[in-house]
Simulated scan of single mutants.
Amino acid sequence: MARRHPRHAVLPVQSFVALTAPAAVRDGALTLDEPIAGHWKAYGVHGKERTTLRQVLTRRSGRPRFPAEAAGRDLSPAQLSGSMR
């Protein structure tokens, strides 16, 4: 079973990264648009192989998680607006 990190442990890490990453970019240690997995191999699993530092810092690195039963549904705007009536 995979170990999960509690949410309260993740928030300080996000703050630390947000404060230190710009200095690493300024000093040439990192760039905003290269994959993080190039520096941290363990990060590049489960579809995160191409996630960049820019995506993490702008909170655009997440992927939506839909329940399995939603896979076959028509999620088009027309269908969704019709189901809300």
Rank of each mutant, 00 (worst) to 15 (best):
M1N: 07
R3Q: 07
R4P: 00
R4S: 09
H5A: 14
H5F: 13
P6T: 09
H8G: 00
H8R: 13
H8F: 11
A9S: 09
A9W: 06
A9D: 10
V10I: 15
L11W: 04
L11A: 14
V13E: 09
Q14K: 10
Q14N: 07
Q14C: 10
Q14P: 00
Q14Y: 07
Q14H: 06
S15F: 06
S15E: 13
F16E: 11
A18I: 00
L19G: 09
L19H: 05
L19Y: 00
T20L: 13
A21D: 05
A21R: 10
P22L: 08
P22Q: 08
A23S: 09
A24K: 02
V25M: 13
V25I: 15
R26M: 13
G28F: 11
A29Y: 06
A29V: 08
L30P: 03
L30V: 06
T31R: 07
T31F: 01
T31L: 01
T31V: 14
T31K: 00
L32S: 07
D33A: 03
D33I: 02
E34T: 10
E34I: 00
E34L: 02
E34N: 05
P35K: 05
I36A: 02
I36S: 02
A37I: 02
A37R: 01
W40K: 01
K41G: 00
K41T: 10
K41N: 04
K41Y: 02
K41S: 11
K41L: 06
A42T: 12
Y43I: 04
Y43W: 15
G44Y: 03
G44R: 02
G44H: 02
G44P: 03
G44K: 00
V45H: 11
H46Y: 05
H46I: 00
H46E: 14
G47Y: 08
K48I: 00
K48F: 09
K48N: 14
E49T: 05
E49L: 07
E49K: 11
T52K: 01
L53F: 15
L53W: 15
L53I: 14
Q55P: 05
V56Y: 01
V56W: 04
V56C: 04
L57K: 03
L57R: 12
T58A: 10
R59P: 00
R60K: 15
G62E: 09
G62K: 08
R63M: 11
R63T: 12
P64W: 08
P67R: 15
P67L: 14
P67Q: 11
E69H: 13
E69T: 07
A71P: 01
A71L: 12
A71K: 12
G72N: 10
D74V: 08
D74Q: 09
D74I: 06
D74R: 08
L75K: 00
L75V: 02
S76L: 05
S76Q: 03
S76D: 02
P77D: 04
A78W: 01
A78S: 10
Q79N: 14
S81K: 08
S81Q: 07
S81N: 02
G82V: 01
S83H: 03
S83K: 11
S83L: 15
M84G: 01
M84H: 04
R85K: 12
